[in-house]
Design a protein around this nucleic acid. Structure first.
Lengths: 221, 221
DNA sequence: ATGAGAAGTTGGCTTTGTCTACTTTGCTTG
DNA sequence: CAAGCAAAGTAGACAAAGCCAACTTCTCAT
């Protein structure tokens, strides 16, 4: 089982292809992923990938899957700590969602963008998606028990929370939330650049988390 | 200026191409748009489009622009009515955003998806985006004056509102909010299919609008 | 009327996904 | 241990699609 065996058969081409694709997605964008280049980068021929994936979509599904696994691990870590305060966990989960998007913008795009939407997803992909969502649902339930979130269908409430975070993440990743200096003289939000920028997006994130959690709080009256 | 002049020169190819592309986007998806087919459908040759658009991205930008014009018109209609109650307007705007996404799912994807993200947007596109956003900002300001929304940077608050609606719209359009019968026995939300489905997504929309507006309400204490 | 430039055409190049038929290799089974 | 079979990999080819270049046809302003 030598690592450097350059024989006819690659050790684990499937995994190698996914890793390479993952790298390309983040560094050069989803569009830059080509079956041929993937083959070349992993030292095999252009069509070798077809022995492991039905087609390109199938391969991209596997890459997206990897993304959900990463998210899932992050969520697991969050759940492992501070298991007593549900609301705090929920806030951390929400922030973690946006943080993931900022850490892996292109991967995030792949996971939720229109490249895969419409196409039939792999069962494996569906599974990891459900698994990562489970943390949210579980924590919402916990909050309901602790009376920090209103009663009602926990899945619906989770959807609200998810949608809010997802919207913010999406707009941030796509650079659609920008400085509106030209419009009102008030810099508000921007993904690109640095410094104050970072602070601004952080501020909007704070606002968002606060608003959503306040919006889902028990109706006091 | 006869309509049926099949001469060498097309009347207004640029507009015809955009309209055709718009049709294809909605009926067959963004991927189905090809320069060649567009030419054929409008009765010109494969490369005629390049006399009016630098490249495919440029053309798609023009299509997206059309989408923002439609949204802008809808917003204008909303603003024209019920101009006195800011909060009601805001709610209607939010619902209108999601409604638009459901009415033109593929166009919505084009407008906000990753096809155009990253690529330089046309100035014209940027302009209509800003214009459509202005309705939101204006209404948020109105609400702040009427004391129905908390004080603070109106652009930031608008971002929150927008992000919430955008997240919901995105997830709905991509069919990512589904019945989770398998997970918890409680059907929650689904885009596909009919009937109860529609009701469910309506219910989540209600929840979302309520939660966001409550979350942005003035801090009573 | 005329010539410049806009609008449109054909041919061709390149990239990329993917099919088909072939080869190589490792593992299993008699 | 030989035989062979299936898995893994390869080369060739084809079609779709973006887009460049060189050419043609019109329209319109001077």
């Amino acid at each position: 089982m030598d690592e450097s065996k350059k024989s006819y058969h690659h050790g684990d081409l499937r995994k190698a292809l996914i890793q390479e694709a993952l790298k390309v997605v983040e560094k050069e964008g989803i569009e830059a992923v080509t079956m041929r280049a993937l083959g070349q980068a992993t030292g095999v021929s252009r069509t070798a990938a077809y022995r492991h994936f039905e087609n390109k979509i199938d391969l991209l599904c596997a890459v997206a899957e990897e993304g959900f696994i990463i998210i899932g691990e992050r969520y697991q870590n969050i759940m492992d700590q501070a298991a007593d305060d549900g609301l705090a966990s929920l806030e951390t989960l929400g922030r973690g969602y946006v943080a993931f998007a900022m850490d892996y913008p292109n991967l995030f795009r792949l996971m939720f963008g229109s490249e895969l939407a419409g196409h039939a997803r792999t069962d494996a992909l569906r599974a990891v998606v459900d698994k990562s969502m489970a943390s949210f649902v579980h924590t919402v339930l916990q909050c309901q028990e602790q009376g920090t979130i209103q009663q009602g269908n926990p899945l619906a409430l989770t959807s609200i929370l998810w949608a809010g975070m997802h919207g913010l993440a999406t707009l941030l990743v796509d650079g659609q939330l920008q400085t509106d200096e030209q419009a009102h003289g008030v810099p508000i939000l921007t993904t690109d650049k640095v410094g104050t920028t970072q602070k601004n997006s952080q501020k909007v994130l704070d606002l968002m988390v606060g608003a959503i959690l306040r919006g889902l709080a028990p109706t006091s009256a």
